[in-house]
Simulated assay, not measured.
Amino acid sequence: MFKDHAKIIKAISVAGEVAGRKKLQKIIFIAKKLSFPFQEKFAFHFYGPYSEELTLRIEELCNMGYLNEVREKKSGYYQYCYTITDPGIDFLSMHELEMPALQGCLLDMNMQNARFLELVSTVLYFDSLEKEEVVEKIFTLKSKQKYTHEEIDEAYAYIEQLKEKAKLN
């Protein structure tokens, strides 16, 4: 049970700080699709892939004092930032987690904006479909985001870059 909690702590630890709940959801989903051993189940939701399990784990980890959640007021909304605490570092030291390529992938993803990660995670969610079908789904399901063909091509290229980084895993 706590091994899955430790993986979430490890992800936030190697990322340094993750700003935004949506961003955290997308980072973990993308990492899972890159074959990192995250166990949370994801379903397609309003903002792309979403895991209720991940939301509950994050809440538990904050309640146990292993993660710090800070609510920051942004222009018209609140954003939640996550960092590991000292008890979280101690907890992590009790678990053997061999994911050597995780840090490079997560640091890279953490530098991207949430909108782009939403696109990348949506592409990966529908990765069993042909590219043309994925593009059609994006234009239908994500019409409010107004993604362009160029952004979709960038997402596909970015996925390939991440797959190369993840090969060390």
Rank of each mutant, 00 (worst) to 15 (best):
Y156F: 15
N169I: 02
I30R: 01
G104R: 13
I12R: 04
K165S: 05
Y156N: 12
T55Y: 12
L107C: 15
Y125I: 06
E17C: 15
N110M: 12
R71A: 15
V18E: 06
M99R: 07
I27K: 10
P37F: 01
R71W: 14
E96R: 15
S128L: 12
E118D: 13
P37V: 00
A155N: 08
S51L: 04
Y47L: 07
Y47W: 10
T83I: 01
V123M: 04
N63H: 07
K7G: 01
E59N: 02
Y66I: 02
N110K: 13
N110F: 13
S35A: 12
L24D: 00
E59P: 00
A11R: 01
P49R: 09
E151P: 07
T122V: 09
L107D: 11
F116I: 07
Q103C: 08
V134G: 00
Y50L: 13
K73S: 14
R21W: 03
E96N: 14
C62S: 02
Y147G: 09
Y82N: 01
D86I: 09
A155L: 06
T83Q: 14
M64I: 03
P37N: 12
C105D: 00
L107T: 15
P37W: 00
F91M: 12
K23P: 09
F139Q: 06
S13H: 15
D153P: 03
V123P: 01
K22N: 07
N110R: 13
V120W: 13
E17T: 04
P87L: 04
K73M: 13
D90P: 07
K10D: 14
G48Q: 00
L162F: 04
G88W: 10
K10C: 08
Y50M: 06
L61P: 07
L97V: 11
D108N: 15
M99Y: 09
Q25W: 05
E133R: 13
L34Y: 02
E40F: 14
M64R: 13
M99V: 02
K165I: 05
F46H: 13
F38Y: 04
L124D: 00
G48S: 02
S75M: 12
R21T: 08
I28Y: 00
N68E: 12
K142C: 11
E52P: 07
K26R: 11
I84S: 03
E133T: 05
E160K: 05
C81I: 10
A43T: 11
G16Y: 06
K142P: 08
Y82E: 04
K167P: 01
M1S: 09
S121G: 05
M1K: 14
L119E: 04
M109S: 03
K73Q: 14
F29A: 04
Q103F: 13
C62P: 01
V134T: 06
Q161A: 05
T148P: 11
N68T: 03
Y147Q: 05
R21C: 01
V14A: 07
E118S: 03
M111L: 15
V123S: 12
E164P: 08
T55R: 12
F126A: 03
Q112M: 11
Y80N: 15
K22T: 10
E72H: 11
F44A: 10
Y125R: 03
M64C: 14
E52G: 15
Y78F: 10
T85A: 01
T83F: 11
T122Y: 06
C105N: 00
F46Y: 13
D86G: 10
F29Y: 11
Y158T: 04
Y80M: 07
